[in-house]
Write a protein that binds this DNA or RNA. Structure first.
Lengths: 179, 179
DNA sequence: GGGTGTTGGTTGTCGATACAAGTAATCGCG
DNA sequence: CGCGATTACTTGTATCGACAACCAACACCC
């Protein structure tokens, strides 16, 4: 019984353990802060952000699912809850009546505008402030290389920065695109 | 209304988006392969591994929770299911009768021994093979820095490599420590 | 214009986790 | 000792996501 498995070298194992730990702890940290301060999961926040940044603050469900790395059923459930809370509205797409459009409401915009500063602060406190500019660039390259394997369709690498919480969310630029 | 939030610079946003995407997609990829090939979630696999590597293949619940980044309630539920499947046994700790010890069974050892090669292959295919040795070292440093923020107790950085799937799991070394 | 297949989305069910509450054993300390 | 506080874990409840099944609309093709 020959075993041709290429087991992990110590350096590989050490890096892997840390990566897994980070991947497991990060979502919980993001959810905890957002739930406490805004009553939103990180996924809900990201979805609302993606809608807000879309032209006319409206986006198709499939496009939104792709932008948020979600399956369509998951997004459907989340969208229903967000709609029940009055944060988004859904309506059939005129061009393709199979499709559904999601639009963020004023209440939704208000909520993410209020939630954004705290979230950005959390991101800085937990991740960005721990890294040097060089490490930030390295992280960008490393995550990009991994995503090529994890997400063969490259949906992510193609989309622009959906989390650019800069002036886009500050208020004016967010609304100016709509009216 | 002054806004003193330090919004994300483009380089920060780009790296952050990729990190979040990686953190969201990685667990699913690991679970999918292990569930398909061994009927285990990645968390269950990691837990069984941690037990197998402990002295006498036995470990306390609290220690195991720390090693696997899990809350105690979560671990308790998982342990019950693993026990029902005959992969581990639980019994009160003799020294401290509040505590519970978990020990992996022969069936559990067999299962992770059979699951390990496929899992290692998945880790290589999705992550390690995408990185250069230099990037591996960078990832180790970056994840270490982030974990210092995410896991203030530093439980993780203190523990040795629980995923070292080398000779430890090959069969002999795993059992030699037990009898 | 009517199959046939594909796309877009929703719904139902089930398993899994978080959170809160509860229990039992141990520790600290007067 | 003996009583409160802490530790270690379990259980119950509610929520969330995965998967599969389903339905409606479009696309094509002859």
């Amino acid at each position: 019984m020959t075993d041709d498995t290429r087991w992990l070298a110590p350096e590989e194992s050490a890096a892997w353990v840390r990566l897994v730990a980070m991947a497991e702890l990060l979502p919980g940290a993001l959810d905890a802060q957002l739930l406490r301060d805004a009553g939103l999961t990180h996924f809900e926040y990201a979805a609302l952000m993606a809608i807000a940044e879309a032209p006319a603050r409206t986006i198709r469900m499939t496009e939104l699912a792709s932008r948020t790395n979600a399956t369509l059923p998951r997004l459907s459930h989340v969208a229903r809850r967000l709609e029940e809370r009055g944060l988004i509205t859904r309506f059939p797409c005129p061009e393709d009546r199979r499709a559904t459009n999601a639009r963020i409401t004023e209440a939704g915009l208000d909520l993410i505008s209020r939630a954004a500063p705290g979230h950005v602060e959390t991101v800085r406190a937990n991740v960005l402030d721990a890294l040097t500019p060089t490490q930030l660039e390295q992280l960008y390259e490393i995550a990009g290389a991994v995503l090529t394997r994890l997400d063969p369709d490259e949906r992510l690498t193609a989309t622009s920065c959906q989390f650019s919480e800069g002036p886009v969310v500050g208020g004016e630029r967010l609304r100016s695109s709509a009216r």
